[in-house]
């Protein structure tokens, strides 16, 4: 199924983190409650306008199991993907918006996080463009979460991160609050050095043991950790798309 997903652009907006995204998600699926659910799932055409499957809260709403879903993805890809055109172009670096959210997501996925930090927008784009082919290479595809930062301001908010531009591979704690630096490269590093830093980070990454939900929540509460969504909404504070 993961292989089948490569013929699609996979997008995972974070629920309740952006007003416009929340409105879009609500327009795709709101269920009987009329409010935004924690998760929304659908498949859309390349223009993002036409739904190719019905929407729901997860793939389970349209397929019985992983095999059936993979078959559906392959079927849709045959109908909607023109292979030569898509393969000829390099894919972009699939990033998460903002360091705090990226650290949380990396913790959720139990994956190493790569920070591409440039001095400014231009330098960050150059670094991201050099990283993109590596991110989509057979060896490294789907092995990291990525965040690109224009400037070093956000780095100072996290203990243990150098306060200068560069490529940093980090392992977050279980809550995405702190992190350990695993490997790094200069912001002007070429493909070989970037590739070596990514490989070194992947090798140094120590996959955390799977945790039970109850234990994770109890320990997080004991440590005083909580996550407030950027829009201020959640299941308890429903998002209905109406401002004011």
């Amino acid at each position: 199924m993961v292989t089948a997903s490569r013929s699609f652009v996979c997008v995972r907006p974070k629920s309740f983190e952006d007003w416009d995204e929340s409105e879009l998600l609500l327009s795709i699926f709101s269920g009987r409650t009329g409010r935004l659910e924690n998760t929304v799932f659908t498949i859309l055409d390349a223009e993002g306008e036409k739904q190719l499957t019905r929407s729901g809260r997860s793939p389970k709403w349209i397929s019985e199991d992983a095999d059936e879903f993979a078959a559906l993805l392959n079927e849709l890809a045959e109908e909607h993907v023109r292979p030569t055109k898509a393969k000829a172009r390099q894919r972009s670096l699939p990033t998460i918006k903002g360091l705090k959210l990226a650290m949380n997501v990396a913790a959720c996925d139990s994956m190493p996080l790569v920070l591409a930090v440039g001095r400014d927008e231009k330098a960050t784009k150059k670094l991201s463009d050099r990283l993109a082919p590596l991110a989509w290479s057979d060896e490294l595809i789907g092995r990291f979460r990525w965040v690109s930062l224009a400037g070093t301001e956000e780095l100072s908010e996290v203990k243990g991160l150098p306060a200068e531009p560069g490529l940093y591979v980090v392992q977050t704690d279980a809550y995405g609050i702190t992190c350990e630096l695993l490997s790094q490269a200069k912001p002007t590093a070429k493909e070989k050095a970037l590739s070596e830093a990514l490989r070194a980070g992947l090798q140094a990454f120590d996959p955390p043991r799977t945790r039970r939900r109850g234990m994770h929540v109890r320990e997080g509460e004991r440590k005083g950790y909580s996550w407030e969504h950027a829009t201020g909404h959640s299941e308890r504070v429903p998002f209905t798309g109406k401002k004011g």
Binding site: F8, K14, F16, F41, I43, L44, D45, A46, W227, S234
Partner: peptide, 14 residues
């Protein structure tokens, strides 16, 4: 890239 979109939102907290 003229590729279809697989969309699956999620909330990063439990």
């Amino acid at each position: 890239l003229d590729l279809p979109i697989l969309l699956h939102s999620a909330a990063p907290r439990c």
